[in-house]
């Protein structure tokens, strides 16, 4: 692997300044994704700026009932936090469904959002990938693409975002606090990740060198009735082949509010606004949930090997919302 330097910044401003001055530097947090990619030659930073000692590891309950999660809070700690378990079960479940215990002990909140796709072609420098090397082509488009996108892909890239956490955060309308060279800024999670379009190498809307410092969850009492359903090829330590994060708020039988997001279907966590629209204000039924999923997936374009993701996503939408509705009634 490429020789690299290592730097431990004193504060956030210094970290951001170093990255701004060093065009080939990268932030190192848990390292559970970056270090692997460095060994594979997929990422080749010449400087690692270790942000894990910065004071970004607190979970703070906000006066308005929301929650601020420091960017370096480890996934295990976040999943175990009493406020998360009580107020945002969808988040705790998404975290615990991800990776393994050992990885969750290392992986951070900010790093999780910025992890790279698990597309096998991206991870193999011997194969064509526009995301890894713009202009080389997308081997996945007509290759082995069972695990890849059904929504919003482009001819240049059919990768999916691998995070479970991000799907839950998308459903919760989370806000990402970032520090740019110009200073701090808020980015809605829904606006953090990009569609692949003409530039699959650009995965987020963040400027180079920007550091995620925290994730803020708005108060959402309805989220106490929320859950995450992940489908994968084995019972543990596998990325999703389909997932849904759901918050359901019923007034009697009528859907007062609903938040729905999908994983494993697109280049970003997929907030299902159309499905929510179908559901909102109507009496809940499994048939309604199915129609809502169909509305969301109407524009899906499955690839050669992943057509099953449409019925799968539909099935887990219906099942998850129905279970939440039954739980609310009982």
């Amino acid at each position: 692997m490429r020789p690299f330097r290592y730097h431990r910044p004193a504060d956030v401003a210094e970290a951001v300044a170093v990255l701004a001055a060093e065009p080939e530097a990268a932030y190192l947090a848990g390292g559970t994704n970056l270090v692997d990619l460095m060994k594979l030659g997929v990422q080749r930073p010449d400087l690692l700026v270790d942000v894990t000692r910065l004071p970004l590891d607190a979970v703070e309950e906000l006066p308005d009932g929301g929650l601020r999660i420091g960017a370096t809070v480890r996934n295990s700690d976040l999943a175990a936090h009493p406020a998360v378990r009580r107020d945002y079960p969808v988040l705790a479940r998404a975290l615990l469904d991800a990776a393994s215990g050992q990885l969750r002990n290392l992986a951070t909140t900010g790093g999780n959002l910025l992890q790279r796709t698990r597309c096998v072609y991206f991870q193999d420098t011997g194969k064509a990938c526009n995301k890894r090397e713009p202009g080389t082509g997308c081997a996945a488009r007509h290759g082995q693409n069972r695990d890849l996108a059904v929504l919003d892909w482009s001819d240049l890239c059919v990768a999916t975002h691998p995070s479970d956490l991000a799907v839950a955060l998308a459903a919760l309308d989370a806000v990402v606090e970032v520090h740019e060279p110009d200073g701090p800024r808020d980015v809605p999670l829904a606006a953090l990740h990009r569609s692949p379009g003409e530039h699959p190498e650009r995965e987020t809307t963040l400027e180079r060198g920007t550091l995620i410092t925290a994730v803020r969850l708005p108060a959402l009492p309805a989220a106490r009735h929320s859950t995450y359903r992940k489908v994968r090829d084995r019972a543990s330590f596998a990325f999703a082949v389909g997932s849904v994060a759901a918050v359901l708020d019923l007034d009697g039988d009528v859907v007062r509010d609903v938040r729905l997001a999908y994983g494993a279907v697109a280049h970003r966590p997929w907030r299902a606004y159309r499905a929510e629209e179908e559901l909102r204000g109507r009496p809940f039924s499994p048939e309604l949930a199915a129609r809502a999923a169909d509305a969301e997936l109407a524009e899906a374009r499955p690839l050669r090997h992943n057509g099953f993701k449409l019925p799968l996503t539909r099935a887990i939408t219906v099942r998850t919302l129905t279970e939440l509705a039954e739980g609310a009634r009982s």
């Binding site: 069972r146 090829d233 082949v241 199915a290 099953f308 019925p311 799968l312 539909r314 099935a315 099942r319």
Partner: peptide, 11 residues
Amino acid sequence: LDKLIALSPLA
């Protein structure tokens, strides 16, 4: 699971 997905009317 993709070989068994059609088991339920939901899917």
